[in-house]
């Protein structure tokens, strides 16, 4: 971990950048726009304007959101003393890219086609390097434990032909890599954030599996170690009714999330609502960073808020472009703070 004093400049820059995060009022204006063109016109008053100019059509707004996110990651990486904090936030995109390439390779074997168009440059590992490694089957230089995980996943596929098993391994690998990266930084707040994120992911997965009425034996494979709540506790939770989960988990912070949901009886809407509530819970873990002038957790806090901003923006623009119920979209907005 870099000395705390070095974070003075980074935190100041992040505070300035936080001021440019989209306000709720602007999102409401976008949401109330008549059509996509007028929504993009409102958006062009913000930092997204430079990316919007590069679009070929209004339907490509996702590219602008991705470009802004990439720009922010790049900027923050330049001045943050511990770049591992940025890597931590970009890690899910690396694993997404690996999944795309693995699935492409499996599809090609069965006469399908490669889907390189689904790769994103938001990850830590350059897309070209990943393609090269997976196409030449030379995994040695892959970081974040992927050099062992990818060949293992291929052998699991050869044996079982079950893509879900491969996905479970990769998801497990993602959280394991996050834990290792967090521990390597030596920043307590980063480790706590990762543990909280794993808890949120486990609760979200449990809820999804409960809704799917999955067999108890199959549940363990979807849970991840390293959270504040043990895997055993989570497994015992699965057989209990959802209504009692918040009571059983009252010892953990994640139980607070249940107090924000309204329709606990309808699992379909509960799953959707919990996605939002758990995202906000993950943001709250590092929320105390706003009182710290030298806290490294400011980096995670800002980047997570930027991710939530991108999500909110996507919700608003998708809602406008498809002319769906605006109240529904409003209910999905994450509180960015």
């Amino acid at each position: 971990m870099a000395p705390a004093e070095q974070y003075g400049y980074a935190v100041a820059r992040l505070r300035a950048m936080s001021g440019r995060l989209l306000e709720e009022a602007l999102l409401q204006r976008i949401l109330e726009s008549e059509d996509l063109d007028s929504a993009l016109k409102v958006l062009s008053e913000t930092v997204y304007s430079s990316w919007l100019m590069e679009l070929k059509g209004s339907g490509e707004f996702d590219r602008a959101i991705e470009a802004e996110l990439l720009h922010v990651y790049g900027e923050v990486q330049k001045f943050v003393p511990d770049t591992a904090l940025v890597q931590l936030c970009r890690l899910p995109y690396d694993f997404h890219n690996v999944k795309v390439l693995m699935k492409s390779a499996l599809l090609v074997r069965e006469g399908g086609e490669r889907r390189f168009d689904l790769l994103t440059s938001l990850g830590n590992v350059p897309v070209d390097d990943l393609i090269m490694a997976l196409e030449s089957e030379d995994f040695r230089l892959l970081p974040f434990g992927l050099h062992q995980l990818v060949p293992h996943c291929f052998s699991v596929w050869e044996q079982s032909k079950d893509i879900l098993e491969v996905e479970k391994l990769l998801d497990g690998g993602l959280f394991s890599a996050m834990r290792k990266l967090g521990a390597a930084t030596g920043i307590e707040a980063a480790s706590m954030w990762i543990r909280g994120k794993i808890d949120a992911e486990n609760v979200r997965n449990l809820l999804r599996m409960k809704r799917m009425d999955m067999e108890t034996g199959a549940v363990a494979g979807f849970l991840h170690d390293g959270g504040l709540i043990s895997r055993e506790k989570l497994l015992s939770l699965f057989s209990e009714p959802v209504e009692s989960w918040s009571k059983i988990l009252s010892f953990a912070d994640v139980s607070k999330a249940f107090s924000h949901v309204q329709e606990i009886n309808n699992l379909n809407s509960l799953v959707v609502e919990m996605e939002k509530v758990l995202d906000e819970y993950v943001a709250d873990i590092v929320e105390r960073a706003k009182y710290l002038a030298f806290g490294p957790e400011n980096v995670i806090s800002y980047l997570w808020k930027k991710e939530m901003e991108a999500k909110n923006l996507r919700i608003a623009l998708v809602s406008v472009s498809n002319d769906t119920d605006r109240t529904l979209a409003r209910g999905l907005f994450r509180h960015v703070g």
Binding site: P92, L164, E167, E201, R204
Partner: peptide, 8 residues
Amino acid sequence: YGLATSLG
């Protein structure tokens, strides 16, 4: 699909 990179 994996649950970590997808939504409920």
